[in-house]
Nucleic acid binder design. Structure first.
Lengths: 360, 360
DNA sequence: TTGAAAGCGTTACCAC
DNA sequence: GTGGTAACGCTTTCAA
């Protein structure tokens, strides 16, 4: 494998001149440039990124810290990232994270530009001190589906999504709406689920409905867990007539529970998910769509800009809109539902739900 | 950021000693080792992978060359790769490939260990000379879903999958079975589709059926294309009663075409896919399952072994089994189908289909 | 067992 | 414009 010295020798110039040509430095005569270029071609020379990185203090790599297996949506985001990186000169390094310890380890080791020139952190709210160290090391960071002090973030309007989904259910006449979401005290500090839950609570409150504590259940972000949670919900004395979940993955679990409990969807039970991952279309799931791919592309773009500007990216929050996608898992509650009474008197509102679907 | 010199100074030793401790070289006295370790902890020192890589001539990175957007299955394979890499010390670098030119460029630039210590190439049959250069550069390569001269590969038994799928259709009584697959002359040289087609042809031949050329159609591996192709198929004077596709992605397109043409599935048209990607379960698609995740894990394991052995991996082919998953898109052909006659007399067999499903 | 020094392949500063 | 030369942070002889 040819080195810069080989090229220099063949072109009859010094190594520094070759380096100048490589980095198209202005002060090189046209003649020598040609000679050098010829030598490069002749030797099929390619500079070693390693060797280039050492003196420059950069790695030519961008890190993507991703809880890869946990969320189906992460993959779609990653695709957006790859697209957003396009043919920039950067390599994309995947850092899988499966535990908080691993997250801390990764983040700590990435605190230097010789490791990664920039970082994309997906869904993981990074500890403030990690962010500070990253900043002082001059490693620009862009957050995707997470918030962090002083760092730009590309976010979905999760609260609004929760509102929209719940309003849709309310407008169909549901009064007993349950929520299945992630554990709010999850080890990573994911907050999307909580935000969506917040929107759910807000919409309920706006409609004058009280949230029955029994109707709000949490568990790890896994289909099987959502299924079990829903089975309990359906076994309640006064089961809900509709379920809003924090994600499509969980909604799929809800659907399974409904089937195994002999509940028809949407006749007996309405279900609304969140994300609109690819499966949802085939499960005919009504859901809140968030632009996953686009969010990845946006985040990659922001990181590239910061890198080009050679300065820390402005800590702007880029909020992406959500949209309700009505498919076949939602309908009005069964007529008998009303007669059976609420699970608790307090959930029966004085005021009425407004009956209009303001979600679109 | 502390360097090895800082640690050496603090521990009162030379840099080389610190290096020895780092690479747990045997000849270091217990006492100094402790002093050095203390200094490392005190300074929160982490060696620069870049600087380590230069003299060693390695990058501590593994490259995964993937046609990322083209095949839904690639993502699932990648997950397996990540799992298989576990907590090996290697970084995983993603090389997206969207064109043959890009493939060549990537492969050429990866021909050096300072770029990647090892390579995983997914679905892409690499040109023989690239393979040769990679080998002489000492970069071990493992192929995933592709074959290459002198390189180990993890493969699915695509031909057998094609046979199984077709036999299933035949055993249901279908005689007019179409095939929708990738363009055999695709720019990347993907062959899975052709192999599956081969199995299809073999099963048909074994049943004494002739393949009607009109029934075998090809196009880019995209849902929309498969849909259009199928629309033509269904518009034929003697349309097929069943379609076997080279992938689930394409099967989804077939399903769309059937719906838009007013054909019920499976009553009017049976459909069998290939891969068993996640959506297929929800589309209730009968398909040939191949262990995508497992294939990735296997390939990663092989690469890791080769790296540990410090020698080129044995060029063994690891073939993974496929299995038919019968869901709701296949059934016997409509009774009227026979009466309508074959598209061509020659496709009507003298011998009978055997009626048994030998696929499981 | 340990340190000094050379070298890995580049870049960048400083003269010329 | 161009060529030395000193870094960059580490590993690896070679002596001691």
């Amino acid at each position: 494998m040819a080195t810069i010295a080989d090229v220099a020798a063949r072109a009859g110039v010094g190594a520094s001149t070759v380096s100048r040509v490589l980095n198209d430095h202005p002060r090189v005569s046209a003649a020598t440039r040609v000679r050098v270029l010829d030598a490069i071609v002749a030797l099929d020379y390619r500079p070693s990124p390693l060797a280039q990185g050492l003196p420059r203090g950069r790695s030519h790599a961008l890190g993507a810290v991703v809880p890869f297996f946990t969320h189906a949506s992460a993959v779609e985001r990653l695709r957006g990232v790859v697209a957003g990186l396009g043919d920039s000169r950067y390599d994309l390094v995947l850092y899988n994270v499966e535990s908080p310890r691993q997250r801390d380890e990764q983040l700590a080791s990435l605190t230097r530009r010789s490791r990664a020139d920039g970082l994309l952190i997906v869904s993981l709210p990074p500890p403030a001190d990690d962010l500070a160290r990253l900043a002082s090391a001059g490693v620009p960071v862009v957050l995707l589906d997470a918030r962090g002090e002083g760092v730009p973030a590309v976010l979905t309007d999760d609260v609004e999504g929760g509102r929209i989904a719940t309003r849709h259910l309310l407008s169909l006449g549901h009064e007993r709406v349950a929520f299945v979401g992630d554990d709010p005290a999850n080890p990573f500090g994911f907050v999307s689920s909580s935000e969506r839950e917040r929107g759910y609570r807000e919409s309920l409150a706006a409609a004058g409905l009280t949230v029955d504590p029994d109707y709000v259940v949490h568990g790890p972000h896994v289909r099987g867990v959502a299924r079990r949670l829903t089975e309990h919900l359906l076994a309640l004395r006064h089961p809900p007539t509709a379920v809003f979940t924090a994600s499509d993955t969980q909604a799929l679990g809800v659907l399974e529970a409904a089937r195994s409990a002999g509940r028809r969807v949407p006749e007996d039970l309405s279900v609304v998910g969140f994300d609109d991952i690819e499966v949802s279309r085939y499960a005919r799931l009504t859901t809140v769509r968030q632009p996953l791919f686009e969010s990845g592309r946006r985040a990659a773009g922001l990181l590239l800009e910061a890198l080009a500007a050679e300065e820390p990216p402005p800590a702007v929050t880029h909020q992406l809109d959500v949209e309700l996608v009505v498919r076949s898992t939602t309908a009005s509650p069964p007529a008998a539902g009303r007669a059976a009474g609420g699970p608790d008197d307090s959930t029966l509102p004085g005021s009425e739900t407004d009956g209009t679907d303001r979600s679109r």
